[in-house]
Design a protein around this nucleic acid. Structure first.
Length: 471
RNA sequence: GGCCCCAUCGUCUAGAGGCCUAGGACGCGGGCCUUUCAAGCCUGCAACACGGGUUCGAAUCCCGUUGGGGUCACCA
């Protein structure tokens, strides 16, 4: 059996979408699992909507996710070029082959004529199909024309989908489809197929929305006398309202999740679990996935994208990072928030505390802002904890801290205990006002850690500030 | 509307005729721990769309209904 060859063929009309990323991922996973090849091809034949910026954005997102390609733009390969617009002669030659074999023919109908026909059909509530006007006309390359594939009118085509099982399409639902436009651009069904043939693709895994294209493509493979690849149609990703996932449902671009402080592994983990499962396991490393993934285990029902669960998965990944790695990766998010963090012991201490409390890098930077900027006092917290009643407590802690030349966890604990027991109070009565004075709010890591992170001088300053505020 | 596909907790899913009084996870509720917040631990709520078959036995197989999604271009 020959080496499996898979591909991802996005059209560069925008950023890499969550759904596209999952399609790419499943293809990549299978290629890696089987020792096959993963090909990236850019389907840019829609000149109106394709942009270089989108091409760059797609590369960027794929690389971030860790989906590397063996053949494709910028790495090359034996079946290039990998941009469809650079492959026009190839489509032309395959189309000629079809035309010469009588499997395709030139159609000289104008768009106006075609539109009129469609309108009429609609008015009569009839199903429109191209009437075959030019089916028997002789080939005249001097006249403007498109090329149409001659579809069989009777019978049906059945193929065995790797995830959905057998799917049958009656031929009378098909029409003589345009395969080459007037300007020589191939249409999707033809371009993709020619590329798949010429690039030796053995397994086509793509979105569910392509099932209806498959019979037409199979007919064209047969017209060309080429062997068929295996098809796998992946269920769609839906939004919470069960309609196709779109911007209305929140962030759908892969890079948006990078910018929000998600880990690529976590995004991959979540995406793969949306439609694929392996028993009760939820968290998978990339290495595990390239060992376990199988199209046979992909479910055949559409899945609702659940941001909460993705957040949870990200948290699981975040927590597994070492302090060093966590600090290194969190740093840019502190910087982006305008905070003067450095990749140092302090940051490592911060992230060690943040690990259990924040689910993304962006959350870490936002939640621990006070470690690098003046505390933003929450008025409600201040009203409750920075009062004349708590003043003596704050003063006692302040003085005790001032008397500690080099505070550490032990000495701080001793200090707080003494302040509390001297007044027959619980530790919480002391810790909470101090917490508000130091962080501005009522929620934070353990108070000793907060003092240690801020340092003795800064802690004293904030305590003094709170004291002054109470008056 | 035609055609195609699909149908287990709110969501992702396990389930290949008896292991199902339907399991796990997210989320949600309660409790424990505790200097707050998290985390952790314990615990609760919550599903086989409906109707017919087949079978000794059906979430699992078949048919229908309903519901959802996809697709019907010189877009991809």
């Amino acid at each position: 059996m020959s080496t499996p060859r898979l591909r991802f063929a996005p059209s560069p009309t925008g950023y890499l979408h969550i759904g596209g990323a999952r399609t790419a991922l499943f293809n990549w996973l299978w290629a890696r699992r089987t020792g096959g090849r993963f090909i990236l091809r850019i389907e840019d034949t829609d000149r109106e909507r394709s942009t270089q910026a989108a091409v760059d954005a797609i590369f960027d997102a794929m690389r971030w996710l860790g989906l590397d390609w063996d053949e494709g733009p910028d790495v090359g390969g034996p079946h290039g070029p990998y941009f469809q617009t650079q492959r026009l002669e190839i489509y032309r030659s395959y189309a000629d082959k079809l035309r010469q074999a009588g499997k395709a023919y030139a159609c000289y109908c104008s768009r106006e004529e075609l539109d009129a026909g469609r309108k009429q059909a609609e008015a009569q509530k009839r199903q429109y199909r191209y009437p075959g006007t030019c089916r028997e006309k002789p080939y005249d390359p001097s006249r403007p024309h498109v090329l149409r594939f001659r579809m069989p009118e009777t019978g049906a085509t059945t193929f065995d989908d790797l995830v959905k099982g057998p799917i049958t399409t009656p031929h009378d639902t098909l029409q003589d489809e345009v395969i080459l436009r007037g300007d020589g651009m191939p249409l999707y069904n033809f371009g993709a197929l020619v590329d798949d043939v010429q690039m030796g693709v053995t397994l086509v895994a793509r979105g569910d929305d392509h099932v209806n294209n498959t019979a037409r493509q199979i007919l064209m493979y047969q017209g060309l006398g080429e062997t068929l690849p295996v098809f796998a149609h992946l269920p769609m990703i839906l939004g919470a309202d069960k309609t196709r996932l779109s911007k209305r449902h929140g962030a759908t671009s892969v890079t948006a999740y990078r910018d929000m402080g998600y880990l690529p592994g976590a995004v991959v983990n979540y995406l793969v679990r949306l439609g694929w499962s392996h028993g009760d396991q939820e968290i998978f490393t990339l290495a595990e996935l390239t060992r376990l993934f199988d199209f046979a285990d992909v479910g055949d029902t559409a899945g609702v994208f659940n941001p909460d669960k993705m957040l949870w998965v990200n948290h699981e990944w975040l927590r597994a990072l070492s302090d060093e790695e966590l600090a290194r990766q969190a740093l840019p998010f502190f910087r982006a928030a305008g905070l003067p963090a450095e990749d140092d012991a302090k940051l490592r201490h911060v992230v060690r505390m943040a690990r259990e409390r924040a689910k993304t890098f962006a959350e870490i930077a936002q939640q621990f802002r006070y470690c690098y900027a003046p505390a933003e006092l929450d008025p409600k917290a201040a009203a409750k904890f920075l009062t004349p009643e708590t003043r003596p407590l704050l003063q006692a802690v302040r003085d005790g801290l001032a008397a500690l030349p080099a505070p550490d966890a032990q000495s701080l604990e001793k200090l707080f205990q003494e302040v509390a027991t001297a007044r027959a109070l619980g530790l919480g009565k002391v810790a909470q006002p101090v917490r508000v004075a130091l962080t501005g709010g009522t929620a934070s890591p353990g108070i000793y850690d907060v003092v240690l992170i801020l340092g003795r001088a800064e802690s004293l300053a904030r305590l003094d500030g709170a004291l002054a505020r109470i008056g």
